[in-house]
Amino acid sequence: MSDSPHVYPTPRDYWLIALILAVITGAEVSVTYVSALDSVVAPLLIVMSAAKFVIVVGYFMHLKYEKKLYRNLFLIGVIAAPLLFGTVLFTFGVLIGS
């Protein structure tokens, strides 16, 4: 296990991260209004919200700096949910973005 606690980012970094998150959110809302992007809007949105997800977990929840055990506990849920529910949606003929 890699133990390197308490080298968290500074408030400056946090404000910067929040700015990045705000920009991605703006981009997300914007692409839904651009009709030229209609065919790729679903993958774009999924990628952008995944990026926000990872940034919040990694920096605000500072999982990036924590013990691997914490990451693994959370990761089981994060991986299991789309796998299991993707299968359920498949049997219903519903897949995200289709």
Binding site: L73, F74, G77, V78, L84
Partner: peptide, 11 residues
């Protein structure tokens, strides 16, 4: 963290 992993399945 374990609880949050569980919450992923809830939501």
């Amino acid at each position: 963290w374990a609880f949050l992993g569980s919450e992923c399945l809830f939501f």
